[in-house]
Simulated assay, not measured.
Amino acid sequence: MELDEIDEQLVRALQRDGRASWEALAREVGLARSTTKARVRRLVDECGLRLVGAVHPGALDLNQMGHVTVEVAGPALPVAEQLAALVETSFVTTTAGRFAVTAELRTTDLDAFQRGLSRVQAVPGVLAVQVLTYTHLWKDPYFPPGPLSASGSARQFDLDAADHALLSRLRVDGRASFAELAEVSGLSPGATRARVLRLLGAGVLHIGALVRLTPLSRVHTAGFAVSLGGATEGVAEHLTAIDEVDSFAEGIGWCNGIGSIRAGSQEAVFATLERIRALPKVRALESWTHLRAVKEEHDLAHPLTT
């Protein structure tokens, strides 16, 4: 189903705030509240839009994150499906380019990350892997930016049973009503609202539209890796200021940083890549096109436990 510009505006607004009121969304697109609500309902019911809560990895004690690009021998999909079955992977895609498969790993620490990487390398059909272990999230549609360290605010947040119940429910339905959330949390609707706002304010939770590889529209999604001549800081700030750059993480490994681009056309993707190449200190840029999401964290989210 083809989306028009108003639909695209709604998706972008919901990506920023998946619990935005109907009135706020109506003001965003210049339509009546009832029309706006009907539009969003159509996006959810007919187009497969999902509004979900993303829990910061640090709140789940997943303190080590990284990106793996995979070269394969033979068909890519069986490899991607086996990678998706690993508990360490949170996101797996098939791609067009030198790397047939990409994956993101999230583990408790570096030792667990290494064990997960060994399992990736042991999957039949995996020919070679290139790894970037994240040290800093500069931009991500689901998590607040900042260093991946034990001092992050999400890691200092003390979660109790009610918090975990709320997070589990919101991972499935980011727009669940406070009355519905009160039922699972055991709190009053007022106390539930205060808890949800606290989780959002602390960066533990972000509620938004799941859009990384959405089939909703004509948006093209590409990945890229940059190698720099010098410190990432400064370059990363310029890079993440580009609207089409959807995410960017700095790390240690085969390149200095990895990110993604979302744009309305192949020409816009190319123009964004050209802007990145023109940034100071960028010495090399490699890119690939994401074709299919084989595993998306929110599709396969397991209930949280205390």
Rank of each mutant, 00 (worst) to 15 (best):
I6K: 07
V11H: 02
Q15T: 08
G18W: 06
R19Q: 03
A20T: 02
W22Q: 10
E23I: 12
A24Y: 07
K37W: 15
L49S: 04
R50D: 06
R50T: 10
V52G: 00
G53N: 05
D61N: 15
Q64A: 13
H67V: 10
A73P: 04
V79F: 10
L83I: 08
A84M: 05
A84K: 03
A85R: 14
L86I: 08
L86G: 12
V87I: 12
T102H: 03
D109M: 11
D111R: 15
R115K: 14
R115M: 13
G116T: 12
S118V: 13
R119G: 04
V123H: 09
V123Q: 04
P124D: 07
V126I: 04
V129F: 07
V131P: 09
T133N: 09
K139C: 00
P141G: 01
Y142T: 01
P144F: 03
A150C: 01
G152Y: 04
Q156Y: 05
F157Q: 06
A162D: 03
D163C: 02
L166F: 09
L167C: 00
S177D: 02
E180C: 02
L181W: 08
S185I: 02
S188M: 03
G190W: 06
R193F: 03
R193C: 01
L197I: 02
L199K: 01
L205R: 00
I207E: 00
A209L: 09
R212P: 00
P215R: 06
R218E: 13
R218D: 15
T221Q: 05
T221W: 02
G223S: 08
L239K: 06
I242L: 15
V245K: 00
V245T: 07
G251M: 08
W254K: 03
G257D: 05
S260K: 02
S260M: 09
R262N: 10
S265Q: 06
S265M: 08
E267C: 07
V269I: 15
L273A: 06
R275H: 09
R277A: 13
R277F: 07
L279M: 14
K281F: 09
R283V: 12
A284F: 12
E286K: 08
H290F: 10
L291P: 10
L291R: 14
R292G: 00
E297R: 11
H298E: 05
D299W: 12
L300P: 00
T306K: 14
